[in-house]
Design a protein around this nucleic acid. Sequence first.
DNA 1: TTGCAGTCAATATC
DNA 2: GATATTGACTGCAA
Length: 555
Amino acid sequence: GSVSDMLSRPKPWSKLTQKGREPFIRMQLWLNGELGQGVLPVQGQQQGPVLHSVTSLQDPLQQGCVSSESTPKTSASCSPAPESPMSSSESVKSLTELVQQPCPPIETSKDGKPPEPSDPPASDSQPTTPLPLSGHSALSIQELVAMSPELDTYGITKRVKEVLTDNNLGQRLFGETILGLTQGSVSDLLARPKPWHKLSLKGREPFVRMQLWLNDPNNVEKLMDMKRMEKKAYMKRRHSSVSDSQPCEPPSVGIDYSQGASPQPQHQLKKPRVVLAPEEKEALKRAYQQKPYPSPKTIEELATQLNLKTSTVINWFHNYRSRIRRELFIEEIQAGSQGQAGASDSPSARSGRAAPGSEGDSCDGVEAAEGPGAADAEESGGPAAAAKSQGGPAEAAAAPEEQEEAPRPAEKAQPPPTSGPPAAADDADGEGRARAAPAATRPRAPRTARGPCQTPPPRPAAGEDAATLSRSAAGGGPCRARDGADRSSALPSTSAPAAARRASSLQSLFGLPEAAGARDSRDNPLRKKKAANLNSIIHRLEKAASREEPIEWEF
DNA sequence: TTGCAGTCAATATC
DNA sequence: GATATTGACTGCAA
């Protein structure tokens, strides 16, 4: 049935998900005669028949369907890389190996392509071409990624970091040369890799590249060469610029311009980067804890109170949610590795198992750990929280109301899970607001609390409004505590895909001593995040459940 | 329209 | 100078 459907109503490539593309790749392979026998083990392990390398894949694909990068460029020739090693029929397995064993480097990048135009090796300086991938190879890589078996992202980054540090190679060079990413991205990637199963096709690319690079026996030398070339180029430029006024031409490629001497005048046009003051961040965090997904109205309120642009507030929430998620993952991994005999360091794998399902799960588990206690702890006790003056008293006072208002009713303490949806919170808001102002305001935000802000919106989620947030922001407080609780309740249901996991997560959720207790102080911040994350999970759950079902959720 | 993933690039920090 | 952090942006999916 699926085949029939697919053959009669194929979706355009651009609309297909990674998974959805799989059948088409298979078909293309099959058409090309590459898919020999058997099934392509997409997941890797088996050895299957086939697939040369991605590269090869690529070609076929291109011929047949893809538009065409007209330029296979010379470099194309290079592309052979990937496949070269394993020629013919290999299956994904081969891919795996490709990635895992030392095979001939895929130079996709570095060498491979660069050669093209620039290459004149020595020439210049401009070593460049930062981006390794270009047409052909890029595609190859994509294919490779598509067919790649699960990789241990954590292990890969770990190894990369080691190699880089051992050889005194910088992230910038590595990123621009091998990954085609900027230093900041590389840093982030190396420090907080996401588990393979949570990465999109695009997100996996850097990991595949890293793995390939690790497998390249000459990887270090190549980078070193690049480094040298860069240096040379830099010096050259520098000299020339010194002698001449400023010849600086924006060197086309690469790397260097970053630092070198290019003054770049026009930059003036750029708008200055917004830097949030610590108080503002705190306020936003509090707001987040109250409501990870604030309504437009709430956002607006926050923006006003903090004297920020709404877009800034929106961005902040997006970034915060996303970063918290990642941190949770990392934590989980680390915890896992510790817990688990540390044997395998492969987080991804671990994560995979651990939190196979949705992030929610994984998250839950984690959070759960600190869950209830954690949440509170942090807030109240947490370093950051503590800091806040408001926290203390205010919270206490607030506590009551908040409970209600808080979307997350469940709050650990009081309201038992029963309170299904967060809705209740709303009203509460009303009262809470009073205290709001202070915190938020500090720096720029003059308008403190707009007192009793608006009335609470109807919707649970949306419901809580600025008032609540502001309150929390301002006073900080109380809410958070709840968070932990609520979430806990919610989470379980949410994620809990696998029974096993579920169990564990539940455990943690309920703050089994071990977890919570175990955590060291430094976790506080993490706890906070986790707590917040729980909120978001809850939020999503609720959303998903769409009001009617809350009832069913038993925790 | 909203949320997210992935990045960039300006800053901050080491 | 290298690395880490983080606000903003782009593209995509639901």
